[in-house]
Computed example of a mutant assay.
Amino acid sequence: MSTVIEQSVQARMVASAPRMKTLPARLRYDRRDPFTVRMAFPARATLEGTEVSWEFSRELLADGLESAAGVGDVRIKPFGRDRTALEFHAAEGVAMVHVRTAELRRFLERAQKLVPAGDEHRFLDLDRSLTDLFGGTC
């Protein structure tokens, strides 16, 4: 059984212009890091010309599908009946994308099968985490 889930999604960049640009994005969940979801945007979709990846909690994503969630760099909230808005806050500004809620739910269902909510602690590799934290000297 694979320990990683990846899912491509189409995101729409929200801008002041009336037409929103569709961006490819990739969601990733790894049971070796069971609390974290990663969302990556390819280099061609960013102003810097390099891939940009954001990390946030699986719980934040699940909560944001139902009501506004998050107070930090990543904020998630429902937008209409079939979309979810994800806001990414950085020193350079704020980017907001819309993703179909059904795609996000499907991703979370797959993650739930891999690591049930509440069982994340069973999949933590504390030795590896401590070794990483101390630069490989544990």
Rank of each mutant, 00 (worst) to 15 (best):
M1A: 04
T3M: 01
T3C: 00
T3L: 02
T3H: 00
V4M: 01
E6P: 00
S8T: 05
V9T: 08
V9G: 10
Q10L: 09
A11S: 10
R12Q: 07
V14P: 04
A15K: 11
A15V: 11
A17Y: 12
A17H: 14
P18S: 06
P18Q: 09
R19K: 14
R19M: 12
M20G: 08
M20Y: 12
K21G: 00
T22Y: 03
L23T: 04
P24M: 04
R26Q: 06
D30N: 02
D30V: 00
R32Q: 01
R32D: 02
P34N: 04
T36R: 11
T36V: 14
V37E: 03
R38L: 02
M39R: 02
M39L: 15
F41I: 09
A43C: 08
A43N: 09
R44L: 07
R44H: 14
T46C: 14
T46D: 14
T46I: 07
E48K: 13
G49W: 11
T50A: 13
V52Q: 14
S53N: 05
W54P: 04
E55M: 09
E55K: 11
F56V: 12
F56G: 14
F56H: 12
F56E: 13
R58A: 07
E59V: 15
L60E: 13
L60F: 11
A62M: 13
D63Q: 15
D63H: 13
L65I: 07
S67W: 03
S67K: 15
A68D: 12
A68V: 09
A69P: 12
G70M: 12
G72C: 05
D73R: 08
V74P: 08
V74R: 05
I76L: 07
I76K: 09
K77F: 06
P78A: 06
P78G: 05
G80E: 05
D82H: 05
T84M: 03
T84A: 11
A85S: 10
L86W: 13
L86M: 15
E87F: 13
F88Q: 08
F88M: 13
H89R: 15
H89V: 15
A90Q: 14
A90G: 12
E92V: 06
E92F: 06
V94F: 02
V94A: 08
A95W: 02
V97C: 09
H98C: 04
H98T: 09
R100L: 07
R100K: 06
R100H: 05
T101S: 12
E103Q: 12
R106T: 14
L108N: 08
E109K: 05
A111C: 13
Q112S: 10
K113S: 02
K113Q: 08
K113G: 00
L114N: 01
L114I: 01
V115F: 01
P116I: 03
P116Q: 03
G118H: 08
D119C: 05
D119S: 12
E120F: 10
H121G: 01
H121A: 13
H121E: 11
F123M: 07
F123Q: 03
D125M: 04
D125N: 15
D125T: 01
D125F: 03
R128P: 00
S129A: 12
L130K: 07
L130I: 13
T131Y: 01
L133E: 01
F134Q: 03
F134N: 05
F134P: 03
G136W: 01
T137E: 10
T137L: 06
C138I: 09
